[in-house]
Design a protein around this nucleic acid. Structure first.
Lengths: 237, 237
DNA sequence: CCTCGCGAAATTGGATCCATCGTTGGGACG
DNA sequence: CGTCCCAACGATGGATCCAATTTCGCGAGG
């Protein structure tokens, strides 16, 4: 019964399935703490439970979900502490990437970086309050592109992959929400991006590294605070 | 048919299976490039192919093995380039860990670090040439303990996990072999460890970071060279 | 009204089945 | 003698089956 969704008919079905599930968790369509029922997922994707289970094992290895024996899989609920730890590591790695990117910076790449910032500037007033499961906003795409570009400029696959792995351990839409929620955060974020571009243009590796490091740390702090408020709310309700 | 091996009867069978297979790859018992036959592994572990396949997905997510559609799983053969990239990242992360460890250093921990170095010093002449699949040597254990201790001292779970993930992407016995092969490498390794301990004792965070960074980079370079020689040999033979 | 307990339903997880694809060895042809 | 083709074999991968365990609901008892 191919109810809806993406038609997974290619050869790498398990990997595709894992991506599909990951995307639904990332977007918030499947919220934090939710149970992942194998039968349900199988029905929605129009496949049997076997590839579902293999896909869940992949997500488990990445730390996005937790598989409890005989109790099924659950989307992990990151603690503020975990978020801070992860973002300290990510800040270091993104800083390194930014430092390395200085060596490879070109006018074209700088222009593309500025392009992403233009999008951020234009969308300072977001069109709609993004709820969970909403399609990824232009702002988020521009943000991602900014970072991804720098990862590519760093010219180290493992570095890019490591950063990606850390990011994918947390439902990303959450961080997007944090950023888009508060106009002040958006402004800070844009200013930090612009300082990073300036440092790259000046080919000041140390400065670029420090700016990127601080930028990621600031974002992590906001995200951690969001989780703090969230857990506080949960305990009250 | 429970032929031999470890009796996997607990509830987290898939995770145990993954660990078992990983251990056999890490030790070199299953060499680089080898095919992982599901039926064979299942028979050896006395279970069916289903948990084997899930375990392979976990290993695939870690990057240790590669799963080609319809062609089964193969232990990845890292290129020297990949090794250098990975060790650049690892060097940065271990350097960070070492820098952070300065804040938490105690006499007890310093003593334990020195203890691992004593083992390295005592075993400058390794008892037997370690072949693939050999049990882990005291030297390797001491080496691991040295690094693990510092990771713990850093007090950041994610950092430790990230470093571990990178390490586990390469069959570890290879790097152990590289170290133990050449007396000169062993001596260098020991001297570097001692400099790191000295920097920790002096509570010089920046120095500790630099020493650890250089140490890991040096090890990575040796490992990359080993892979270069290996691929050269393979092409000849 | 709340708590405890039992039984049915739901869910997981390992084993097994079978269609499909890849591989290999042998034979025919150039 | 080398190359190509085909058939048989082997392996993978998705689907299905069934036992074991957890969860949920309902009712009895305090």
């Amino acid at each position: 019964m191919d109810s809806d969704a993406t038609s997974l008919d290619r050869s790498a079905l398990v990997d595709e399935t894992a991506s599909a599930i990951r995307a639904r968790i990332m977007s918030g369509e499947i919220p934090i703490g939710a149970q992942l029922r194998q039968a349900e997922l199988a029905a929605q994707l129009g496949i049997s439970r076997t590839p579902i289970r293999e896909a869940l094992r992949q997500l488990q290895a990445g730390g996005l979900i937790e598989v409890l024996p005989r109790r099924g899989a659950v989307v992990r609920v990151p603690s503020p502490w975990e978020v801070r730890e992860a973002y300290e590591v990510r800040a270091e790695l993104e800083g390194l990437a930014c430092e390395r990117a200085v060596r490879r910076v070109t006018r074209t790449l700088l222009a593309e970086l500025r392009g992403t910032n233009d999008v951020l500037r234009a969308n300072e007033r977001p069109p709609a309050p993004p709820g969970p499961g909403a399609p990824v906003s232009p702002t988020t795409i521009a943000n991602d592109r900014f970072h991804t570009l720098i990862h590519e400029m760093a010219g180290n696959e493992r570095l890019a992959r490591t950063i990606r792995d850390i990011n994918e351990a947390f439902p990303r839409n959450v961080s997007a929400l944090v950023l888009q929620d508060d106009p002040r955060h958006r402004a800070d974020n844009l200013a930090e991006h612009e300082r990073i571009v300036a440092a790259l243009e000046a080919e000041d590796a140390k400065l670029a590294r420090r700016e990127m490091r601080d930028h990621v740390l600031a974002a992590g702090e906001q995200l951690a605070r969001w989780y703090e408020r969230r857990t506080a709310t949960v305990f009250r309700g």
